[in-house]
Design a binder for these strands. Structure first.
Lengths: 190, 190
DNA sequence: GAATCCATGTAAGCTGTTACATGATTGC
DNA sequence: GCAATCATGTAACAGCTTACATGGATTC
């Protein structure tokens, strides 16, 4: 299980409330790990009981008070230990692939709209990633001060993960084009 | 949930026992959907109760008897209905990406071995896919009878899913190379 | 007046994993 | 003799999803 660890990473990058974490898991962190707020609150409680995180009550004006969580020493140690533990390459679950193979026993062309929808979703996601990259990681001018600046591990590692997301979306778009071409070979209306 | 549907697709491709299904979920189907035998037995029982599959006792010599499952009309209808239902692009859970971003708060170079291990696993998987493709989907000679043969939906769709697996592994290998280059930028011993 | 945002939670149910259990046959 | 393969299951637990619940502040 890595939800605890994903939360630790997110809180190390920036402390925040359960609500804020839930939003991050719907955005930046959500690109490679999703979680609902119910899950996050439950896990945060356990992490607090285990001494992995510290809590601070933050009163607010015009808004409900919030509990701001930050990583405690025990949490840092737990993350470090997990980082040094090998994990198995994760098992894939790809509904769309099940559907595509299943389409052989139904009408293959009926799947075209569905695949097009997914392709569009991946295009949107790619555009979103590329915009984020342009905003947060502009290419440094060669020879400029920035190009020679010492490497900031946090930034560089965030960037390489983002590049992974970009590569994934591009691969998916290309593959879904391939799928559409294959499906078109059976139709129309066949 | 798509485990039921993955089982339906697998049984349509070829009827078999729970044990055989479990093996398929560790091989061909397992490339995009995994399941353990415990899960499969439980779901098969439910599918049988719901009338989605038929069972036939098959006595065997020198081996325990087995129950051979095949798809019933209700199962076929359930699959068809699922195929026509739109599904949301699935949420991703990528442990390694969590680790990579987490490495910023630990020793980034300690992750190199782990990433290399994963890269090797993806290389092995790619080699396996390519061997399967060469075996099951040899390129037809242009102008040959095979090249003009009517399209076999089951085969073509299996092939396009396999091509997706190949594209995925290639993407992952390239990305993990990128990750390694990034990690190397912080070391050695830094 | 309705919808959305901020903020936190409970409860029920389903899915999935891990461990345990049995028992015959085949290959080393 | 030991391990692996074939074959099917039970039980306990952990993880995740969906639905429900509350309540003030802001925006349309």
């Amino acid at each position: 299980m890595a939800l605890e660890h994903a939360i630790l990473v997110s809180l190390l990058e920036k402390p925040g409330s359960g609500y804020e974490l839930a939003r991050r898991f719907g955005r930046s962190i959500g690109y490679f790990w999703t979680a609902t707020h119910q899950q996050i609150y439950r896990v945060l409680k356990r992490m607090q009981d285990d001494g992995w995180v510290d809590v601070r009550d933050v009163p607010q004006q015009g808004r409900p008070d919030k509990k701001e969580y930050s990583v405690a020493d025990l949490g840092r140690a737990a993350l470090s230990s997990w980082l040094h533990d090998p994990i198995e390459p994760e098992s894939v679950r790809h509904d769309l692939a099940v559907k595509i193979r299943g389409a052989a026993f139904d009408d293959p062309t009926a799947l075209i709209h569905e695949v097009e929808r997914h392709r569009q979703a991946h295009r949107d996601q790619l555009a979103h990633y590329l915009a984020g990259q342009a905003r947060d990681f502009p290419a440094p001018e060669p020879g400029s001060a920035a190009a020679q600046a010492p490497l900031d591990a946090e930034r560089e590692l965030q960037h390489v993960v983002l590049r992974g997301g970009i590569a994934y979306e591009r691969m998916m778009i290309d593959w879904l084009d391939d799928v559409l071409a294959t499906l078109a070979g059976f139709g129309p209306g066949r």
